[in-house]
Design a binder for these strands. Structure first.
Length: 172
DNA sequence: GCGACAG
DNA sequence: ATCTTGTCGC
């Protein structure tokens, strides 16, 4: 749990959220085989989304699983739906779940697109849209936030950023 | 100048 | 993403 100090800007998600993921990565050092990140991997304007960022910082294989497209042109390769970059590189696969709701799977770090798709599919549960790691983490974080909001009591791990940390002069 | 735009 | 009222399907 952290207070974030940078606004959300498409393409710069890691600027905002690595403040939260960084400490987690440090605490889990040498205990993680694969990171499944809520956001894109190389399906990014600079081929380096937050999933790639997490993989490089942790030196661990990582996959990006996003709910919406950020970058890339959609093409059809037979029955498959893919996202290709400006150079034609396949940067993501679009997997459709139950009702039209799709997810974008892209390599983060140290993994191929094929392996990423195979692994994510193995983590999908019938009826739900997101892979189990993401779905569970999302549910847990939302539940804890609601509880903190209701009781006003934060649990250990809560760290504030400097009150003077205003980045409005950099953005907006 | 006009769209597009992870969470 | 968040907020929020009512509503649809399992």
């Amino acid at each position: 749990m952290r207070i974030v100090c940078i606004p959300y800007i498409p393409g710069l998600l890691a600027f905002r959220e690595m403040a939260v993921l960084g400490p987690i990565i440090a605490r889990l050092r040498n205990q993680v085989d694969l990171y499944v990140v809520d956001g894109h991997g190389i399906a990014h304007p600079r081929r380096f989304g937050i999933a790639s960022h997490v993989g490089v910082v942790s030196d661990t294989p990582s996959i990006g699983v996003a709910k919406k497209r950020l970058y890339g042109k959609e093409i059809a390769e037979g029955p498959l739906r893919l996202l290709v970059g400006d150079n034609g590189e396949k940067i993501a696969a679009i997997i459709e779940s139950s009702r039209g709701k799709e997810i974008y799977v892209s390599p983060g770090h140290r993994i191929s697109l094929d392996s990423a798709v195979r692994l994510v599919k193995s983590m999908l549960k019938p009826g739900s849209r997101l892979p189990e790691p993401t779905r569970i983490a999302d549910a847990v974080s939302k539940r804890i936030r609601r509880e903190v909001k209701r009781t006003g009591i934060a649990r250990p791990g809560f760290i504030e950023c400097s009150s003077s940390m205003s980045l409005d002069r950099f953005f907006g």
